[in-house]
Amino acid sequence: MFAAIAHPEQDVLKSLEMAAPTNAFASRAYGAYLATQNGVPYVFEYNEGASKISFLGILREGRLHKRLEIPSAPNCAPSHGVWEALQQWARKEWLTEINLLTFGSWLSTMPALGPLSHIKTRREYVLDLRPEQPFVKMRKGHKTNLSKARRAGLVLRRSASVDDCIEHAKLIDASMSRRLERGEDVTTGANMRPLLSLLETGAGVLFQALYEDQVVASNLFLLAPEGAYNHTQGANDLGFEHGAAQFVLAEAMQALRDEGRWCFNFGGTDQFGSGLEKFKTGFSKTTEVIELQAGTFGVRHRYLSALRRLIA
């Protein structure tokens, strides 16, 4: 049985969260965050016998499009009934597109949800923080940077304030600019509005490195009851010089582990073999590399969909 629940209540979100306690894109707070964004938040539920699949989505409508975005696709085989049910619902609702994303997901093979207009292969990096020593054979560069940071007296701060969010957005931009200068393909820009919504709804939290009272590196982590996801990060030149990026991650992981958040996701990349990938995998040899796919599927022609909505 398939159910699409628009504007889900707390009990629906709670049940979603309990089903995936390590996934920060399935938390109650993340559901609350989606409700602050332009669009209608949904929880989709699919029951087959005793098993229940549930996941979040947001429906966005424009003049010509009606697009469903699923931030964290459920990890179901392409033959699983949930996909057919989702496709049927999408056709019934006259959607133009389904954007199936795989943040915090384990979906490695795209299901057939219609004509595929775009597909992306990507990776995420997950570290189990439960062992007493979670950082196994840390890269030499990371170790050096951590020592530099501690020698420089960097201090870790946890925050969700507006001012610190502004600093976070600025540091993302500083990092992006540095990567652009290195010739990397960087397309994302920092926008403090959604970042602040993540903080205000409790879906995320900032950990920042301070050097002489100045924020030099900042990470925003999305939180799940038993997990955390490294959403965005940035460091300025001073932070870069003092190993602040490694410092924030290492210290934050310790703090999150102390709170019972043992499943740590470093976030993803589609640039395999890049410096970013080396950075994410450099904290521990035990970091698991998750191969993922994300894709966009066509459902109904946008003109037909728009015409139907016009008539309705």
Partner: peptide, 16 residues
């Protein structure tokens, strides 16, 4: 939030 306005065009980033 906080009272400030972004720089650049409305669709430019960073939005700070």
């Amino acid at each position: 939030p906080g009272g400030g306005f972004q720089g650049g065009k409305v669709d430019s980033t960073p939005v700070v």
